[in-house]
Each structure stands twice: as C-alpha cells, then as structure tokens.
C-alpha cells in the first residue's frame, strides 16, 4: 500500500506542473519507475486513477517506463545490476528496501569485494518525466 503514498505525490506534483504549463486537460503523464523500489504497477496505476478523479488528470494516459537499477562499488569500482543481488534477498529484506530504498546498504554488498559502500547509479524510485 506504499504505492498509494507515492501516487499521492505524483498526482499532487502533476497537477502543479499542469498548472504551471497552463494545461486545461492533461493527456499524458510520463513516469519513470526504478526497479529498486519494487512498485506494484497494478496497485500504483489504480491508486493514480483513483486519486486523479475529478481533476484535470482524470482522463490522462499514464505511461510507465521501467528502468533497471545498477550499483557501483565505491571501494573496488565493480558495477553490477540490482537484479543480481535482489534474488538473494528474503521477503522481509525486499520489503524494507521497498519502503526505504537506501536500506539496500544494509542487505546488499558488493559481490566482488563485500563492501556495503556502493552507489545506486540508476533505478532508485519514481520520477515524473513530463506532463502533457
């Protein structure tokens, strides 16, 4: 249900963007959804549509671009995909990362040197790319 909290942010922000652009009706909302936050797109989409009711976003098409996440070790420089480490996590660990993606540093370490000191280079969370 975390998706509802994020959807509320998207609707609020999209309305502000539309207002700044003087849009009377929004036709499309372009979203980028990073892999690390493990968003349930079905729930997220339902939440966005429910929260958009009776606003200028109501009939907008919401386009999602999922983007994979990559990690880069600060210590040894190794780069790897989140997916590679994700499969080794248990459900509780996945849920913690779902709520607060930065807890990835608790549960994942560099496959090469074992350090928890790495950077999320791509794919953290949800962003609005444009409101048209």
């Amino acid at each position: 249900m975390h998706e509802w909290a994020l959807a509320e942010g998207v609707v609020n922000t999209a309305l502000k963007i539309a207002q700044n652009k003087n849009l009377r009706k929004v036709k499309t909302i372009l979203l980028k959804v990073g892999e690390i936050q493990q968003i349930d797109l079905e729930v997220f989409d339902f939440a966005l549509k429910e929260l958009s009711k009776d606003t200028i976003l109501e009939k907008a098409e919401i386009k999602y671009e999922n983007f994979p996440a990559y990690l880069s070790c600060h210590v040894c420089g190794y780069k790897w995909s989140f997916y590679e480490s994700f499969n080794k996590l248990n459900e509780e660990e996945k849920e913690a990362i779902h709520f607060v993606p930065e807890t990835i540093h608790v549960y994942i370490k560099c496959p090469k040197c074992g350090s928890h000191d790495f950077e999320i280079t791509e794919g953290r969370g949800v962003f609005i790319e444009d409101v048209l």
Partner: peptide, 9 residues
C-alpha cells in the same frame, strides 16, 4: 528534467 514527486507531499 526528471521531477521527484515526493517533495510536493
């Protein structure tokens, strides 16, 4: 530019 939707909430 990509916009973080969380800030508005």
């Amino acid at each position: 530019k990509l916009i973080d939707p969380r800030l508005s909430i």
